[in-house]
Design a protein around this nucleic acid. Structure first.
Length: 105
DNA sequence: AGCGTGACGAACT
DNA sequence: TAGTTCGCCACGC
């Protein structure tokens, strides 16, 4: 994988790789981890992630516990499927036992 | 060089 | 209780 985009995005993508399988994290957690409070910027960065799905961007969800969105091929449906395979159950767009699956840096 | 937009969040009405 | 509005930072046009 090569350096793409800005250093900001690279930080975000790097953080994504830190997320262990079967766990999920929130945009807010990432934002704080990289020293920014703009979870929007993080969302944009992840959405523009050229490495998807090489990077586990599907393990990132809004702090609401919702599934959020997914730009990679397959869309949200694919995202749910991937998570399900990793042991993260999703019911009607909601993460089951969200707090238990949540991974903080 | 400036404005609008976006895989969000929290507060307010 | 639900829906709406404003704010956050970075990036594209």
């Amino acid at each position: 994988m090569k350096e793409a985009g800005t250093s900001f995005q690279q930080m975000v993508w790097k953080a994504l790789e830190k997320i262990p399988s079967g766990k999920v994290t929130t945009y807010k957690a990432i934002a704080e981890h990289i020293g920014s409070k703009a979870m929007r910027a993080v969302g944009s960065a992840v959405g523009k992630n050229p490495y998807a799905p090489d990077v586990p961007c599907h393990r990132v969800i809004p702090s609401s516990g919702k599934i959020g969105n997914y730009s990679a091929p397959g869309g949200v449906d694919k995202k749910i499927e991937l998570l399900a395979k990793e042991g993260v159950e999703v019911r009607d767009g909601w993460i089951v036992k969200f707090k238990e699956k949540l991974y903080l840096f």
